[in-house]
């Protein structure tokens, strides 16, 4: 891949991930679900692991768990997510780590501020995405969100990173 191709891919990936971030802040969860491949995994680990399936994570969501989680957010029976905290997030420091055929691995930094009960909390994370290039853009194959203090004392989350 030459520089121009790299820059073009980086720009398209960035557009896609900013769009995903906007969906999550707006809690447009049905649209967010549609970004995923059925085999995709959405993982928020506690610690690094070779295989996150073998360790305890904050979440390890396959297609069913993602849908169940969104349903829980949307149905209105979960007191912590009705109403949820509102969030504003920024994504930056995008790096394309690998391109392999139709698969792109990209990492970035994420800062998220949540507000509820008149109280704001700030979370920082390194995020790594595995995207599949499609005719119409990208789909999510894997998203791993490494919160800086993932192994520390957290608070409960009523939204997605």
């Amino acid at each position: 891949m030459n520089n121009a191709e790299h820059d073009n891919l980086l720009w398209r990936v960035t557009q896609f991930l900013w769009n995903e971030a906007a969906m999550l802040d707006a809690k447009e969860y049905d649209a967010w679900l549609a970004l995923w491949q059925p085999k995709g995994l959405y993982i928020i680990p506690i610690e690094e692991a070779e295989n996150y399936a073998d360790v305890l994570n904050l979440c390890y969501d396959d297609d069913k768990m993602r849908r169940d989680r969104i349903k829980r957010f949307q149905d209105g029976f979960s007191i912590s997510s009705a109403p949820p905290a509102v969030t504003v997030r920024t994504l930056s420091r995008f790096v394309i780590e690998a391109v392999d055929g139709q698969t792109v691995t990209v990492s970035c930094a994420q800062h998220l501020v949540e507000d509820k009960f008149g109280r704001q909390r700030l979370w920082a994370a390194n995020v790594r995405y595995t995207l599949t290039i499609t005719d119409s853009g990208f789909t999510l194959e894997e998203k791993v969100v490494r919160l800086l203090n993932s192994d520390g004392v957290l608070n409960s989350f009523s939204y997605l990173f």
């Binding site: 928020i44 399936a53 073998d54 360790v55 305890l56 994570n57 904050l58 979440c59 390890y60 768990m65 169940d68 989680r69 829980r72 979960s78 007191i79 912590s80 997510s81 957290l154 608070n155 409960s156 989350f157 009523s158």
Partner: peptide, 23 residues
Amino acid sequence: RLRLRLHEHFQGPMGFGSPDDAE
């Protein structure tokens, strides 16, 4: 592995149970 997934399902900051308890 199943025990881990069951734990994640209910417990912790992103579980389907603990955040509602915390609230």
